[in-house]
């Protein structure tokens, strides 16, 4: 299996664990889409924005003495955007509806970010 296929398989597994997820993307640290799963046709946009949110989040965490950045959560009244660093190699970004079990989404997403780090 190519690296791309392995990454796609990991995203499919994540989608299987959390079927309510709408968009799932892996972005490079500088905002290029590496692999994506979703129907919105917004993967390229989301990859750039995930990198921006993550880059800015890191700076906010440093400036305000929060320690190391753990996650980015953007909450709308209909859904969440959540992003985690995949080590130093990329960013996992996903959207999930407002009614989701956010605790579970966080646990799974962090677990899959670790899996992705081994493959990416």
């Amino acid at each position: 299996m190519s690296k791309q296929e392995q990454l796609e398989a990991i995203l499919s597994e994540l989608k299987g664990a959390l079927p309510e997820l709408k968009e799932i993307i892996v972005a490079s640290p500088d905002g290029l889409p590496v692999v994506q799963l979703g129907e919105g046709g917004i993967a390229a946009r989301l990859a750039a924005m995930a990198a921006t949110a993550h880059g800015l989040g890191k700076r906010i965490a440093t400036t305000t003495h929060l320690g190391d950045l753990v996650e980015i959560v953007i909450r709308g009244n209909q859904a969440y955007f959540i992003a985690y660093a995949i080590g130093e190699k990329g960013i996992l970004g996903l959207t999930t509806p407002a009614g989701s079990n956010l605790g579970l989404v966080r646990l799974e997403a962090q677990e899959y970010a670790r899996k992705l780090a081994e493959t990416l």
Partner: peptide, 19 residues
């Protein structure tokens, strides 16, 4: 305040501004 991230394209430098 800067927001450098590792560049994954060949842009002639190691990092690039993302925000």
């Amino acid at each position: 305040v800067d927001t450098d991230a590792l560049a994954s394209e060949a842009i002639g430098k190691a990092t690039t501004t993302v925000a």
